[in-house]
Design a protein around this nucleic acid. Sequence first.
DNA 1: TCAAATTCAAACAAATTCGATCACATTCTA
DNA 2: TAGAATGTGATCGAATTTGTTTGAATTTGA
Lengths: 258, 258
Amino acid sequence: MTEMLAGARQQRILDALREREQVRVTSLASELGVSEMTVRRDLNALAARGALVKVHGGATLDAAPTSNEPGFTHKLSLESGEKQAIARAAAGLIKPGMSIALNSGTTTFALAAQCTGIKDLTVVTNSPRIAEVFHAAANPTQNIILTGGTRTVSDALVGPLALSALGQLHVDLLFLGVHGMTVEDGFTTPNMLEAQTNQAFIKAAARQVIVADHTKWGVTGLCQIVPLSQVDALITGPRLDAEAQEILRQSLDTLILA
Amino acid sequence: MTEMLAGARQQRILDALREREQVRVTSLASELGVSEMTVRRDLNALAARGALVKVHGGATLDAAPTSNEPGFTHKLSLESGEKQAIARAAAGLIKPGMSIALNSGTTTFALAAQCTGIKDLTVVTNSPRIAEVFHAAANPTQNIILTGGTRTVSDALVGPLALSALGQLHVDLLFLGVHGMTVEDGFTTPNMLEAQTNQAFIKAAARQVIVADHTKWGVTGLCQIVPLSQVDALITGPRLDAEAQEILRQSLDTLILA
DNA sequence: TCAAATTCAAACAAATTCGATCACATTCTA
DNA sequence: TAGAATGTGATCGAATTTGTTTGAATTTGA
């Protein structure tokens, strides 16, 4: 059998990776009929191009696929219709020319996907993934600002840099995703650094809108962001039980059931 | 067998390529009954017309065998050998426990892929893509800081937020990718905002190392970042011509040929 | 924590491939 | 027909790719 061109061999590595999610140096070497050193060199080359990520013993696919790849956005669209409905209702509040802020979260991510067509929009976010959505859409009238900071496991940029950045900015409207909300503890999140960053988001916005599906009601995370009464509006789903709706109506200026 | 006209022979190469996806110089030479040198000349001519893409050992139809990523990776794969060597040499300067900075660029990206295994490393970057490499590798001993700012087409975060963030940070070692370097104009980049951000990178670092392959020599971008003499070291490839090497040796403390 | 097994990459060596250069043959042109 | 232009083959040093060795680094299991 005639030996393979180097490019074809690397292509086969990528094919194997897409099929199996992860590959081992040893198995690739025997499958491709080359030495382990050659496989390692191929993995280095592919990793340098961002096509895969090396791990000890082999390689895996990129943990966070870019939004133009099928999978990420697709997976999200399959997700609960409630999040989509909330995102649509939230997008309805945004007018061309506004400046908005989005913290990191799945609901705000769904909202971002709804906003790529809005003209003259300025968006401040601490989520690289949300920034990527706008960047991929490449709307020349939009201005996307990433706060900076260190990244948490949930794709949020937090810490001193994020706080410093948000301290320099002011937006018309903030959409804040949260992990839990109760009467006693208000809006909460499990990560202390994210809580701190979210407080900075609130300070930076003239109006605050919480976006949270009905499953968040009754949940308390580690850290309080703000009490219920400290925000202007909440957008949630109609499946939230009546008692909770009543409580929220009394605590907030505006309750929107998407 | 009567000899073939050059045009007809090249057509047969293209036919073979369409059928097989890839062709080798050696097999084409025997199939067509000509020397390998002649096949190479044909491949060069066809490559110059854009009809195929030469690779080591033969040629393929598609430029990027991966088809995964746009522009960014394509540019990298052209210089892969030299960029890889530069990245390796640069990684050799990094010790566990250090704090480093990487600006946005293909060479620094290749370097990032080499650094995911280094322990207790703090990395400051203005490239979401570089941050993503480290994040995907998920080394728990590493601390990744993204500067924030607005994103340029070349994946760099720039502007007031980036400058503000870099003003608050100090790192041991900076690796800076550039677009051009000449005696008269020093290190340059085509984007004014990136030049400004790169200057902030330089101020934030105790030592500065430029990483640039030999094709950058003699190129002048729109904006100067710094004169040659203002950085501590340059890592480039051995294919840089001798005269340029001599000039650089006189302007810089350290010139490393990877 | 230590020790064994595994994995990694640098260094060197071998094989292959590339392209500059020169020599030769054929074709074109004055 | 002489001379130039072009295409082709051959040679040789440089560059690239690949494999092997070896020691360091990492993971794993106690």
